[in-house]
C-alpha cells in the first residue's frame, strides 16, 4: 500500500498530519511561553498538567460514570489545580533561586506526577479516552480524511490563541506583563505579583490540560504519555516555543505548527531506514534554531 503512494501524496499527508499534531504542540508551547514570560522558568511539568487532566477525566468518565462534558470539566479542573499547587508549593518558595534550580524543580514535579500515575494507574498501562465525536470521515483535506477530534484540536487552538491575544490587551493581561518585567514597580502601582503568578500558572495549566484532553483520544494513553515517549509533546512543544522566540505567543503557535510539520516529515518513505527519524528531526530543528537564530523567528530577546 505504501509503495503505491507518490512522493507528493506523502508530502501532503505529512503536511496535514503535521499541522494537526502541531496543534497540540502549539497548545503546549503557548503554556510554556506564558510561564516563561511571567516567571522566567522553563516548565518541564507543562505536559504533566495534561496527563493529570486526562487521568482525572478518565476516572470521572469510567469510574464515576459522569457525562462526557462534565468529565472534561473535571479533567480541566484537576489540571488547573495541579498548576496552582505547583506554583504555590514549589515556585513561590523558590522565587529567588537561580532559574536552573527552578528547572530542576519543575522536572521533579513532572517525575513525581509520572511516578504517581505508574503507581495508581499502571494496570492496565494503556487506556483509551473516548473522543468528543466518533466521526472520522466528515472532513477531507488533500484527499485525506481528518477526524472530528483533530478538527476540534485546531479550533480550540485558534480560540485559545485569540483569547490570549485579547487577554494581553486587557488590563489584567497588561498587569501580567508589567509584573514579569518590573516586579517591584508593578507592586508599587498596585499589581499583586503573587496573584499574577498564580493566574499565569493557572492559565498555563489550563492550556496543558486542553492539550492532554484533546490529544489523548487520538491514540491510547499511558503514564507520562505527554512528556516523553512516542506521543510526547513536551520536547516538540519546547522546540516550537524556541522557534517562536520563547517570549512570543504568535511565535509559539507558528513554532508549534512548524515542529509538527517538520516532525511528520520523518514519516516519509525516503527516511524509512532511519530509526527515530522524527525525534532526530525535532532535535536538529531545535539545534539549528538556537545556533542560527537564537532569538527565534518572531522573538526579540536573544537566547
Amino acid at each position: 500500500m505504501v509503495l503505491g503512494v507518490s512522493f507528493v501524496d506523502q508530502l501532503s499527508t505529512a503536511l496535514v498530519i503535521g499541522v494537526i499534531t502541531g496543534g497540540v504542540y502549539a497548545l503546549v508551547a503557548l503554556g510554556l511561553v506564558l510561564v516563561y514570560k511571567a516567571s522566567g522558568v522553563f516548565n518541564f511539568a507543562q505536559a504533566e498538567f495534561g496527563t493529570v487532566a486526562v487521568y482525572a477525566a478518565y476516572a470521572a468518565l469510567e469510574f464515576a460514570g459522569l457525562p462526557y462534558g462534565i468529565a472534561l470539566l473535571v479533567g480541566v479542573s484537576a489540571g488547573v489545580a495541579m498548576g496552582l499547587a505547583t506554583e504555590r508549593l514549589i515556585i513561590r518558595p523558590l522565587f529567588d533561586a537561580p532559574r536552573v534550580t527552578l528547572l530542576v524543580a519543575t522536572a521533579g514535579v513532572a517525575l513525581l506526577v509520572i511516578g504517581v500515575q505508574f503507581w495508581r494507574a499502571n494496570d492496565p498501562a494503556l487506556r483509551v479516552l473516548a473522543p468528543i465525536s466518533n466521526e472520522l470521515e466528515r472532513v477531507r483535506v488533500f484527499g485525506i480524511s481528518v477526524s472530528d477530534q483533530r478538527i476540534v484540536i485546531l479550533l480550540v487552538l485558534a480560540a485559545t490563541a485569540a483569547g490570549l491575544a485579547l487577554f494581553f490587551r486587557s488590563p489584567g493581561g497588561l498587569a501580567v506583563l508589567a509584573a514579569s518585567q518590573e516586579p517591584t514597580a508593578a507592586e508599587l502601582v498596585g499589581v499583586s505579583v503573587r496573584r499574577v503568578s498564580s493566574l499565569t500558572w493557572g492559565v498555563a495549566a489550563l492550556l496543558g490540560s486542553l492539550a492532554g484532553l484533546l490529544s489523548a483520544p487520538i491514540s491510547n494513553f499511558s503514564p507520562g504519555f505527554l512528556t516523553a515517549g512516542a506521543s510526547g509533546a513536551l520536547i516538540p512543544g519546547f522546540t516550537g516555543a524556541v522557534i517562536g522566540g520563547m517570549t512570543s505567543m504568535p511565535g509559539a503557535v507558528v513554532g508549534g505548527l512548524l515542529v509538527g510539520i517538520v516532525e511528520s516529515l520523518g514519516g516519509l518513505n525516503a527516511l524509512e531506514g532511519i530509526p527515530g527519524a522524527r525525534s532526530l528531526l525535532v532535535f536538529a530543528s531545535l539545534l539549528v534554531v538556537l545556533l542560527v537564530r537564537p532569538q527565534g523567528l518572531l522573538g526579540r530577546a536573544a537566547a
Binding site: 532559574r99 528547572l103 519546547f238 530509526p275 525525534s279 532535535f283 531545535l286 539545534l287 538556537l290
Partner: peptide, 25 residues
C-alpha cells in the same frame, strides 16, 4: 555546540538529545 546558549537552553538541548538518542541511535 550547545554551550553557546544559556543554561536553560542547554538543559533543553540535552533533554532533546537524550530522547533522540533513545529513539534513534
Amino acid at each position: 555546540v550547545a554551550l553557546r546558549v544559556t543554561g536553560l537552553y542547554f538543559a533543553l538541548i540535552t533533554l532533546s538529545y537524550g530522547v533522540m538518542v533513545q529513539q534513534s541511535l
